[in-house]
């Protein structure tokens, strides 16, 4: 498989064309906006946290295939997860897309992003939504940025 096929795997293309949980969450109690000034990707994460667990999560925004698929798959993965689990997942995900380690089992479908590690300039596309999620958890009032 070429690096390109590795990057644009079927599941990533599918989620970029038909993003899941792509909506505003009316009963969200946490929200943050993310922006990558380099490429103009924008994402908003809506989060409903109950007792430290993700009851519901969604996102809105516009971006490239990698950032859209990353957001879509992240929201799917995180439903029902605890804040502690999210922290571990982000760490593992970050290590995966930066090529520092291979996919751990708990990453599940997110392992599909391993191809990003061959494209250093695209790492920020994959992690923008995660940084925004972190800001949402902390409920920072300002827009977060990957810069």
């Amino acid at each position: 498989m070429s690096y390109l096929d590795d990057l644009y795997q079927e599941i990533i293309l599918d989620h970029s064309k038909k993003p899941r949980n792509f909506k505003e969450l009316s009963d969200a109690n946490h929200k943050a906006d993310g922006y990558n000034p380099l490429c103009g990707d924008k994402v908003s994460v809506y989060l409903k946290l109950e007792d430290g667990f993700v009851e519901d999560i969604s996102f809105m925004g516009s971006g490239c295939a990698i950032s859209t698929a990353s957001a879509s798959l992240m929201t799917q993965t995180l439903k029902g997860k605890s804040l502690g689990e999210i922290e571990t997942l982000f760490k593992n995900f970050h290590n995966l897309v930066t090529g520092k380690s291979s996919a751990s089992t708990e990453l599940g479908k997110l392992a599909v992003f391993h191809g990003v590690s061959q494209f250093p300039v695209r790492v920020k596309c994959a992690t923008l939504v995660w940084h925004t999620l972190q800001a949402a958890i902390k409920s920072k009032p300002e827009t977060v940025s990957t810069e």
């Binding site: 690096y3 390109l4 490239c64 300039v121 596309c125």
Partner: peptide, 14 residues
Amino acid sequence: EGVHAHDVGTILDQ
């Protein structure tokens, strides 16, 4: 249509 410029750029770069 349907493809973000950055995805175009990555594929052309290859």
